[in-house]
Write a protein that binds this DNA or RNA. Sequence first.
DNA 1: CGCCTTTGACCCGCGC
DNA 2: GCGCGGGTCAAAGGCG
Length: 323
Amino acid sequence: MDCSSWINTSLDLNINPHHHHHRVHEEVPKKQVESNLFSLGLSMVPLKEEESNTGFLEEELKRVTAENKKLAEMLSVVCENYNTLRNHLMEYMRKNPEKELSPSSKKRKSESSNNNCDPMALASNNGNSESSSTDEESCKKPREEAIKAKTSRVYVRTEASDTSLIVKDGYQWRKYGQKVTRDNPSPRAYFKCSFAPSCPVKKKVQRSVEDQSVLVATYEGEHNHPLPSQMEATSGSNRCMTIGSVPCSASVSSSAPTVTLDLTKSKPNNNNNESKIATKPKANSPEQVPNVLVEQMASSLTKDPNFRAALVAALSGRLMHNN
DNA sequence: CGCCTTTGACCCGCGC
DNA sequence: GCGCGGGTCAAAGGCG
């Protein structure tokens, strides 16, 4: 399967206010925008700013609204693409039942459901996808689900020249191994949460086969302690938490889509502003995702505290820089 | 000195 | 049973 389809889901968000003039932003009334921002828990700038800043803020609001709209549109497109691809995959697997699994079937069971080079499948595999487990898996190893910790994947775009396998997610990690795997020339790094053994979370980081500039971080388990960077952030300093930090607990309830938000490495002077959003509709619904569901997904996005945290960090970082 | 990374050795599940 | 390959261990060294 061609992975360029998911790479193209990168959102060409132009957050630079100097380039917003071409956007369509007159469609949502300002009051609605403000209420939307309030519902997000965002406070852009202290209200005691002088008059000149209000114009800037209005433009900022319009811009955010436009991007919000664009996000929703992209989301629906991604969902449609996902279902199209999924239908194709199902069709293909139905026609070629035994050939399909050849590369990953050699792997361990616990990994085989994860280690798939199809990014759509990757994005959809998050441990809580009980509906995506195949029939044979569920009857072969019923207790696997209980034993196996929640897994989630995070895609982080880095510069191609950056050879480190470091994914900043706000947690502290201790590297305990590195291996070169067969299906990927890039080494895979193994990390444990530095709170181990009290915290059982592990993560694996490896460059994507298709795009060497993309790091794929696979998280296993859930942290049983707060995010260290959040503790710092709430301790008085207005320093932003690491942009792009997406804690593994970002995999949300089974009724909501799993969202991976990647804001890492967004720099003010380049156009590397892509925020890649991988969505996971309910895996066992081959039919097209209705708009209602898309709206539901978008709504769940705004309710997800992790998404909000990342969004707040990204926006505040942008605003501070643009000021 | 303590924590971290590195890296070769070892373990273990799976397929043949 | 054996080999392969992914995952983990643990000794050694680096670094602040």
